[in-house]
Amino acid sequence: MKDFQMFLDSIREPDNRERMENILKYVKEKFRQLKEEIKWNQPMFSDHGTFIIGFSVAKGHIAVAPEAVVISLSKKEIEQAGYSHTKELFRIKWTDQVDFDLLHKLVNYNIENKKDMIKFWR
């Protein structure tokens, strides 16, 4: 998590920082093969040089970006979890429960679906 520490330190609200750290730790512990990266001032995970999932923070939420195809395929589950979404990301409000099962599914999908990809983005 040392690669992400500067990002985490930039989150002023301690509860929000802890929540973001827990999400990043979860992904790192469950998917040990993923590489931690900071790109565009955002923490993300990659696998063999291809993007898997990225995160950013805003005043009211954490934005989770697994790429548009994953949002499209998982739209119902994202909505059932109570999260709003756009074409490229979904939002976990600072007051929402984190649906780690959903997060696990999305990361796992990208790892499997992109196992033969050689580009960073789809």
Rank of each mutant, 00 (worst) to 15 (best):
G60P: 14
K115A: 10
V107R: 00
N16D: 15
F7T: 08
P14V: 10
A81R: 00
F100I: 12
K105Y: 05
R32Q: 12
K87F: 03
K75F: 03
M117V: 11
R19C: 13
N16I: 11
I62R: 05
E36C: 03
K75G: 11
R91I: 04
L24V: 02
M1I: 08
T50W: 02
V107M: 01
D101W: 14
K76V: 15
K75P: 09
F7E: 08
K39I: 10
L89R: 10
I62K: 05
K93E: 12
T50E: 10
R91D: 01
L103V: 08
I52S: 00
R12F: 13
F55P: 01
M6Q: 15
E79P: 02
E21P: 06
E88T: 11
N110F: 05
W121A: 03
D99H: 02
R12T: 13
M6E: 15
E79A: 07
R91N: 01
S84C: 12
R19E: 12
V107L: 05
L8Y: 02
E112Y: 13
P66I: 00
W121S: 09
F7D: 08
Q80I: 15
E88P: 13
L34G: 09
E36K: 03
S84D: 14
I62Q: 04
H85N: 08
I118H: 11
D96T: 03
E37L: 06
